[in-house]
Amino acid sequence: MENFIYHRPTKPADAVKAMKDAADGKFLSGGMTLLPTMKQGLAAPSDIIDLGGLGNSGVEVGADKVTVKAGTVHANVATDKGVKKAIPALSALAGGIGDPHVRNRGTIGGSIANNDPAADYPAAVVGLNATVVTSARSVPGDKFFTDIFTTALKDDEIVTAVEFPVPKRAAYVKFPNPASRYAMVGVMVAELKDGSVRVAVTGAGPKVFRVPEMEKALEANFSADAIGGIKVKASGLNSDMHASPEYRAHLVTVLARRAVAAAK
C-alpha cells in the first residue's frame, strides 16, 4: 500500500474541507472495499479522510420511516430490534453481507457510495424507495446509483443517512457467490404502503435496476406465479467467471419469485 496523509475529522464540514484541499483524496468509512483496493495497488489516494471520527452511527425507527445513519455497520442494522420489526427484509439483507467480521466494520454509507455492482444495499435503497441524505442534499434512491462504481455524489459530498420508508411487505433474496458472499444476483421485492410494488435487482447488471414489467404484474396480483413468465433480457448483464449473462437473467426471475413468496 502506498502511503497517504491521514485525516480524522470530527465534523462533516471539516471532512468536506479536507477533501477539497486534498490533491487526490478518498473518504474512508468501514474500508471493506477501499483498503483491499489500496493494498492491491489499484488505488493510491494522496489523502485518506476517515469518516469514523464523525460518530455518525445509529438507527432511528419511526412509524413510517427507518433512518440509518451512514456510519452504521451492517451488524447493527442486522440485529437492531426496531429494524427487524419494521423492515425485516432490510435487517435480513444487512445480515447477509460478507461475513460476521466484515459486518462489524462495513457501513451502509460506504457500501452505497462505493456502488459495487454486486453489493446488496443498492437493492434495498432502490427496492424500498429510500432517500439518500448527503452533506449537501437529499437524493431519491432511483437517482443515486448512476453507473458501475459511480453515484450521484460529488467528490466532496458525504452520505450522512439513508431513509427507508416502511413498506407493507418486502423480502430480499440473493444467490451469493459461494466464496465472497457478494450477490451474483440479488432481488428486493417490496410492496409499499401506497400499494405500488418495486422489484430491484443487484449483481446482475453494471448497477442496480428495476424490472417494471414485474412490478406491474405484482401490483395486479402479488403472487410468485404472476411473474413466472417474465424474463429480463440477458444482453447488457454482467458476464464473469462466476456466471454468464443468460444465467444471471434466469436467476432474476427465480429469485424475484422467491422474494415475492417470502415477502413479509
Binding site: Y6, R8, L28, G31, M32, L35, P36, I48, D50, G52, A75, P100, H101, V102, N104, R105
Partner: peptide, 19 residues
Amino acid sequence: CVVHVNGTAIKSCTALAVA
C-alpha cells in the same frame, strides 16, 4: 487475522492502525 476491537471481531488485515 481476526481480533476483537472494542468488543467486536474484525479482520485486522483490513483496518488501519491509526483508525
